[in-house]
């Protein structure tokens, strides 16, 4: 097998894993409409003040692994949010003070999976 086919073959697997994590992250919400509204505000922030929505899925995938279940992902996200708040890493969404992870989580829902 050539190197080219390995790389081409790896990409879909990674995307699939990322998509699975994205779905798990979105499933943390009971009411997607609310999250979508918050995420839409984040996505309207100036480019320098926001990250692409899928960055969070990539990060969670790298930190928890592709096999992580929904509860493991919830624990990771909650811990990450708490750490950001402790360190006063916050962003402002229409004045509301939230952690970047909270904002990106909602942005994932708002972006509906589109990178």
């Amino acid at each position: 097998m050539s190197m080219r086919s390995i790389v081409l073959g790896a990409a879909p697997r990674s995307e699939n894993a990322r998509e699975r994590v994205r779905k798990k992250l979105v499933s943390l919400f009971h009411d997607l409409q609310r999250a979508r509204e918050v995420g839409a505000v984040y996505l309207q922030s100036p480019p320098g003040q926001r990250a692409p929505p899928l960055v969070l899925a990539e990060t969670v995938l790298a930190e928890t692994g592709a096999a992580a279940g929904i509860e493991a992902i919830r624990r990771y996200v909650v811990a990450r949010i708490r750490r950001e708040l402790e360190e006063v890493q916050v962003v402002s969404l229409d004045g509301w003070i939230v952690s970047p992870t909270e904002a990106r989580l909602c942005a994932l829902v708002a972006a509906d999976g589109t990178p």
């Binding site: 009411d31 509204e37 919830r74």
Partner: peptide, 18 residues
């Protein structure tokens, strides 16, 4: 007021406080 009036409940959902 404002577009994010439900923000508190959203972030609480993540922590299972719904």
């Amino acid at each position: 007021e404002g577009t994010l009036t439900d923000l508190p409940s959203i972030v609480d959902e993540v922590e299972g406080r719904r």
